[in-house]
Amino acid sequence: MKTLRVIGTVFFTIFFGLPLFWLVSTSLKQELQIGSSDLIWFPTKPDWANYSEAVNRSGILVAAWNSLWISTVSAFITTAVTAPAAYLVAQSKGWFSKVATGWVLSSQVFPSILTVFPLFLIYVKIGLFNTFTGAIILYVIFNLPFSLWLQRGFVKNVPTEILEAGRIDGASGLKVLRYVVLPLILPGSIVVFIYAFINTWNNFLVATVFLQGNEKQTLTTQLARFIGTEGLGLFGPFAAATVLSVIPTLLLFIVLQRKFTANLVAGAVKS
């Protein structure tokens, strides 16, 4: 059993580690070393030229800025609307909560591609096509189902006595939400924010269909363009650009993962 465990650990460390290691190593190699038929695990003299070339390439910096700006705004709006929505769903026992749950479930089952064709035409008609506003609206709505599910566990943990005390004192729902619920579900809001940011940063479908202008590219679509148009000629700068695109989400993810697991555990225990 112990040997099995060691073999498993070694296998999965290589399986998950090697691709990342090779990416970083490629991004630090010179062009000759990349094309070399010898195996160079890691360049003895790391060369940062690929990074400066990736940054100087037309589009990458603009795309990074677009990604950052769209992801931040989308994550803020998602977090801001998820809290009251989760509160309402948890509070109401009637049709509203059923409809909301039904929507959350069906949005997971329905292929998003099915909504993309007509949405494209609607967006062209009402002038939201190729605008950041239009893309942000889509990101918020696409992030919402899972965010609601995440936040629901936190809202449920708010003791009903506290809510009722606030109510009997005559505070409006908005006040209860703001002064009682929001501070208590702050951890949930943080989880939702990070999830929404990572999800938006990495989204490809929305960006590739709804943001087609050259100056509207995000990092994901810009990378995909490189793969598509320039093929494989420029491994070094590609790898460098990919490393740059992965760093922000990876950092956020390292912060998130412990809370994420804890939240999943809480949800599992409850149900």
């Binding site: 650990t9 999965f12 460390t13 998950f16 580690g17 691709p19 990342l20 090779w22 990416l23 490629t26 990572i198 940063w201 990495n202 989204n203 490809f204 990092l219 994901t220 679509t221 990378l223 995909a224 490189f226 793969i227 494989l232 491994f235 590609f238 790898a239 990919t242 695109s245 992965v246 989400t249 990876l250 956020l252 993810f253 390292i254 993962q257």
Partner: peptide, 22 residues
């Protein structure tokens, strides 16, 4: 290993494509 095994979740499809094509 935990961070490694979960890290692909934080990557975009084009980034994953670049990694594996390389």
């Amino acid at each position: 290993l935990k961070l490694l095994a979960l890290s692909p979740w934080a990557m975009s499809p084009p980034a994953i494509a670049v990694i594996w094509i390389t």
